[in-house]
Design a binder for these strands. Structure first.
Lengths: 87, 87, 87, 87
DNA sequence: TCAGATAAAATCGCGC
DNA sequence: GCGCGATTTTATCTGA
């Protein structure tokens, strides 16, 4: 009495569930691989004297819409100046 | 033989465990309360025309060591310029 | 020409902004303190043989509504069995 | 007419930096795509009556080492019973 | 081994 | 109301 393809004495379609779970798992595996690749790039860059932390910031800045980025920069400047942050 | 209040036949000192857990829970409750207070401050500020997102950045900038902050700013400038980010 | 007595060359009411930011900072400081207290409790518990990771799970389980918790448990059981997870 | 490979009046090798950043960006883009695919799978599963939250737990359980998983389960049981959590 | 940084997951709040 | 995006919390990993 394990799982029988036909009957399904519970309300689950086991094969469908299994298929979904396995698809997710394959995709997660790919994602993990890519994440490792990214780490390697940063490690290599670090080995050549670049600061990975700064690089990460640059990457995230480049992903922003230029206009939004400028506007945000301006606001930070404005608020920061108001508090003497950059004095 | 299940668990009787008096004997304690498993390896756990239940009262000690319970005390730890309850201490954590009280502290977590306090933390939650404060987190809500913080949200309220931002909400109030927003109601008066301040941008909460920018305020959060300002708060986090102010928490950094000024020297570190300046150095990081300079590096971002350097890397960003090298890539034409601020052009 | 409201806010800053002397200069006021920008549209910000500096004192209001400063007040908000400082309120947030005080609250953040309290939150940090409490977070440290929580860590200490776990560290002490660990020193007495309790597993902090498990304790965290227990704390989060206790925060859930009992009915919800039971329902979720049942669903995990159901899905897990369907995939032979607990075999 | 912007960055000249030869002169380098700053300490950065711009092309090397640019190459690293662009490699990261390509990989990040792939990662994002896969993350979206994963969301789609969960959405589709949800459309067929499966609970995505539970599915995520199942996926993460399946990624654990079976022995570790059993041990953790047992500990949660132990601690939970000690606090009357499952009563 | 422990703290700090990074990444993942869960939660929350907004906009459609 | 529901998905989407942002924030926060949790867990993992690295380096001291």
């Amino acid at each position: 009495m394990t799982d029988t393809p036909s009957t399904g004495h519970n309300s689950l379609n086991n094969s469908a569930l299994r298929a979904y779970v396995e698809r997710v798992e394959r995709l997660e595996e790919e994602k993990r691989t890519i994440a490792e690749d990214i780490k390697e790039v940063y490690a290599e860059a670090k080995g050549n004297g670049y600061d990975p932390k700064i690089m990460r910031k640059i990457v995230s800045l480049r992903q922003q819409d230029p206009d939004k980025r400028k506007e945000e920069r301006a606001l930070i400047e404005l608020y920061g100046d108001a508090l003497g942050l950059f004095a």
